[in-house]
Design a protein around this nucleic acid. Structure first.
Lengths: 330, 330
DNA sequence: GTGAAAGCGCTAACAA
DNA sequence: TTGTTAGCGCTTTCAC
């Protein structure tokens, strides 16, 4: 059974191809009767326009690409889930590409996007991406790029981010409000700008409030690191009163240690995290956290993309607001 | 700056379009010198073939679609992560479509796939999908379909699944081997075939071994349900010795209850789950589980898809093997 | 070795 | 109101 094309419909109906095309598009100068005949047959034969031909002709597609280090991450998962829905409701499709956190692979992904003539690209760059010229060059091909989450430090480009500064500030203020004193704060990889932003805002907030206790700061790159360090600290005669976790990854390590030692929040120890929101629900009591939602960020990124496609040329830097979600761990 | 096309290269080099096309493809009857000239200029001008034109001409694309209820799920996440990688290494792209577990939306996704002339579709159907004729009809358009995980009960089609029966059997055998007696087994929605398969195999294994203890079976549809039921059971004078969780969702609820009451595995209570593998690492000690890996399933599904594209017409039902991963909870 | 030309399925300007 | 035609960028057959 061969493909149903406009030509086939036209032959069957003794009409020209263009009439059939226009009838299917409800073009005004086709008679109602012809429209009905055409549409009826199209329905019966299950006609679907050939996207390649349409795109080739119109020189434009309805596909967005998302380039991320890895989809196996709660944050990106919620981001993509939300983005796909927005896209689908706007008749766009979403192509997923994983860079594996490798700049070389990322470059190949960009090339692929260009080949596919995608309508736009959402990208969260790798930890090692410094040169973003291949992204900026996409402007020549009129492919808008919206950077999200992990965005380049410099460059005139569209960026949508979680507001790290307000998230960290909100965390610190929460601790101050609850008059917590022995604060252990565990942060991620010191090299990353996300860590620096959150750390600076966190520390500054204590200074600004002239608070009489200052947090102990520790850095680690992994869940395991957080686990081991927490184990050490919990073995000391002077245990911390509260542990602040900069990310879900760190929270997981800390909670394993807390469970290992048998401490029970909030009585034995307080826990506060910055989190995407899923992990905190796995524990009892659920962890109190400052939310950095992928869902919200996706909506922001998508509307920015539509803005670009609508012709907005100036670049924007947007941020999502943070809110605190009360569990029972503090 | 306009697009770089074959025509543009040809004009610039004073060659014909077809010569340029052939040169770029290393066609044998183009001279080495011409090839070099062409390739050099193509590189300089950053030429990329127009995928739409290529696909239109060849009537075939290098895009696969994945239709799933929702990407926000650890199992699908690992499946897609793995599938994307396989696809990329084979120069395919992956389009993600979420059905929202709604048959109507699923139907629209299929339509979209057809329009996009995708090279093949991977699909995990919704809980309510009964009519799969729209999938079977894709055969007419020569679009192979590989069902995975949630597959239709009937119909001649390609299916790759986690082996629920062997996973449940392995779980039961593990409990028997460890001579566990007071077994509480919590299963999911009784209506789902996955639940029935796992339940039947689980129970049968105890019978087959003439084991002198039989598990208490309970069904629930949610984490919260598992939590509440576990709380009830742990309040009884005769607490269970071990709790078996059919899925990650149930495990999360059970563990919240276990933590609430303050029991510590494995001394106070044993825990065994069937799991995708991430959740069990969040606890201490880590939960012992029978693995049902999305990664493995993706590899299986992908190779089946390649088989279809290579012309294999007969349908196959494939299953991944289960293995037990020892934590310290049993 | 290279070029000319047809055609993939569709849209839209122009004709009738 | 409907039809004719050119052309989007590419591949490939056939001719030179």
């Amino acid at each position: 059974m061969s493909e149903v094309t406009l030509k086939k419909l036209a032959d069957l109906l003794n009409l020209s191809i263009s009439t059939v095309s226009r009838a299917l598009k409800d073009h005004e100068d086709i008679s109602a009767e012809t429209k009905n005949r055409v549409k009826e047959l199209a329905l019966i034969l299950d006609y679907e326009p050939n996207t390649y031909a349409v795109n080739l002709r119109n020189n434009f597609s309805r596909e967005f690409a998302v380039i991320i280090p890895s989809i196996a991450n709660d944050f990106y998962q919620s981001f993509i889930s939300s983005l796909e829905k927005e896209a689908r409701l706007n008749s766009y499709s979403l192509i997923i590409l994983q860079s594996g956190d490798d700049p070389q692979t990322e470059l190949e992904c960009v090339k692929r996007c260009k080949q596919n003539r995608v309508a736009g690209i959402f990208v969260s760059i790798t930890q090692k991406t410094t040169d973003i010229s291949h992204f900026l060059k996409l402007a020549e091909s009129h492919i808008p790029v919206v950077f999200f989450d992990k965005v380049p430090a410099s460059g005139f480009c569209n960026k949508v981010c979680v507001d790290d500064i307000s998230a960290a500030r909100l965390s610190a203020e929460t601790l101050i409000l609850k008059k917590k004193k022995g604060i252990l704060a565990i942060f991620g990889n010191e090299q990353l700008s996300i860590t620096q932003k959150r750390l600076d805002a966190f520390k500054d907030t204590f200074s600004l409030h002239n608070y009489d206790a200052r947090p102990d700061i520790y850095h680690t790159n992994s869940s395991a690191g957080a686990y081991h360090y927490t184990m050490e600290q919990l073995a000391l005669p002077q245990q911390p009163d509260v542990i602040f976790c900069m990310s879900d990854e760190i929270l997981i390590g800390v909670m394993r240690a807390v469970q290992t030692v048998g401490l029970r929040p909030p009585a034995d120890i307080g826990i506060l995290a910055i989190s995407e929101g899923q992990i905190p629900t796995f524990y009892f009591p659920q962890i109190t956290y400052v939310e950095t939602s992928g869902f919200k960020l996706a909506k922001l990124a998508f509307s920015r993309m539509l803005g670009c496609l609508a012709g907005s040329t100036q670049v924007q830097e947007l941020k999502t607001e943070s809110i605190i979600v009360e569990g029972g761990s503090l």
